[in-house]
């Protein structure tokens, strides 16, 4: 065999190996969490808040953290949509395509996407101090909203960008203005993609810990107002892991399993939803 063929064989082997390593790391992570968490998973975990002595191994669950994470990520996603959708529409409908302004905005949002969540947490914290706020649901919502906003803008921007120019022209030619075209045609055409962006951002919001560590606080109760502190699932996992009691650590693994399942459901929903909603989309 020629040398160059041997080289190709070797590298092809290495490539397959690398792909296997990367995929098996995913499998390994999911399996570990499943195997370690399943024995400790119980109905009480998902239906009760921590009872007295929960962190010493006594009864209760982490409903506070599950609901807290949903509140927090839900609020943040809502806030982020209010900002992101108009921005994405502005870049694609109101601005001239490919103008310098649009490129500069895209560049900025790309850069913002890479800012670590701990920095958003620290920045959110300085805002809170500035307004004299304490760690609370609202504080966490603001920090997470800032964190997911750039990603949401960019992913919505990417799907809205795919709307054919001619489709917008068709609407303009009927005398519609840009606002009407944006709402009735552009949003409708890119709805599946927009919803996917939203769900992905929501998943990000649920899974993030570093941005809420300063801003959301932690509590065993389910918050009743925006100004109360709130527990989140990732922090609940983190704190339970810190307790050197096997029972509590086991429940940390179970909590990690719950978090992972929630994330998987969200990403599955994103996939299914975008398939389902393509009814009206014009190809």
């Amino acid at each position: 065999m020629e040398r160059r063929n041997i080289e190709e064989k070797i590298f092809k082997g290495l490539m397959l190996l690398s792909t296997m390593v990367i995929l098996s790391s995913l499998v390994l992570i999911l399996l570990t969490v499943l195997v370690k968490g399943l024995p400790y998973l119980s109905l009480a975990m998902v239906t009760q808040v921590p009872q007295g002595g929960y962190y010493l191994g006594k009864g209760g669950g982490i409903l506070n953290a599950i609901v807290g994470s949903l509140y927090l990520a839900g609020g943040a996603t809502f806030l982020a949509i209010l900002l992101s959708l108009p921005v994405a529409l502005y870049l694609n409908v109101y601005s001239k395509s490919d103008s310098k302004f649009v490129s500069a905005c895209r560049f900025t949002f790309d850069v913002l996407c890479g800012v670590p969540s701990i920095v958003y947490g620290a920045f959110g914290f300085t805002i809170m101090i500035f307004f004299g706020m304490r760690a609370s649901l609202l504080g966490g919502i603001i920090a997470i909203a800032l964190l997911i906003m750039p990603m949401m803008i960019r992913s919505m921007d990417e799907v809205i960008r795919l709307v054919p120019r001619e489709l917008m022209d068709a609407s303009y030619a009927l005398g519609a203005n840009r606002w009407e075209t944006a709402l009735k045609v552009v949003v409708r055409q890119s709805l599946p993609g927009i919803l996917t962006s939203i769900l992905i951002a929501f998943g990000r919001g649920i899974g993030d810990a570093a941005a809420v560590i300063f801003t959301a606080g932690f509590t065993d109760a389910i918050p009743t107002s925006l100004l109360r502190p709130v527990a989140t699932l990732p922090l609940a996992i983190f704190f339970q892991l810190g307790v050197p009691i096997p029972e509590v650590q086991g429940r940390a693994y179970a909590s990690a399993l719950i978090l992972t399942i929630m994330i998987l459901i969200i990403s599955l929903a994103a996939r299914l939803l975008s398939k389902k909603l393509t009814r009206h989309v014009v190809k």
């Binding site: 609407s171 009735k184 409708r188 009206h280 014009v282």
Partner: peptide, 14 residues
């Protein structure tokens, strides 16, 4: 003015 393009572009609705 009504406009017809090279390719039909129905709007994403019924």
């Amino acid at each position: 003015m009504g406009l017809l393009l090279q390719k039909p572009y129905p709007l994403p609705m019924s």
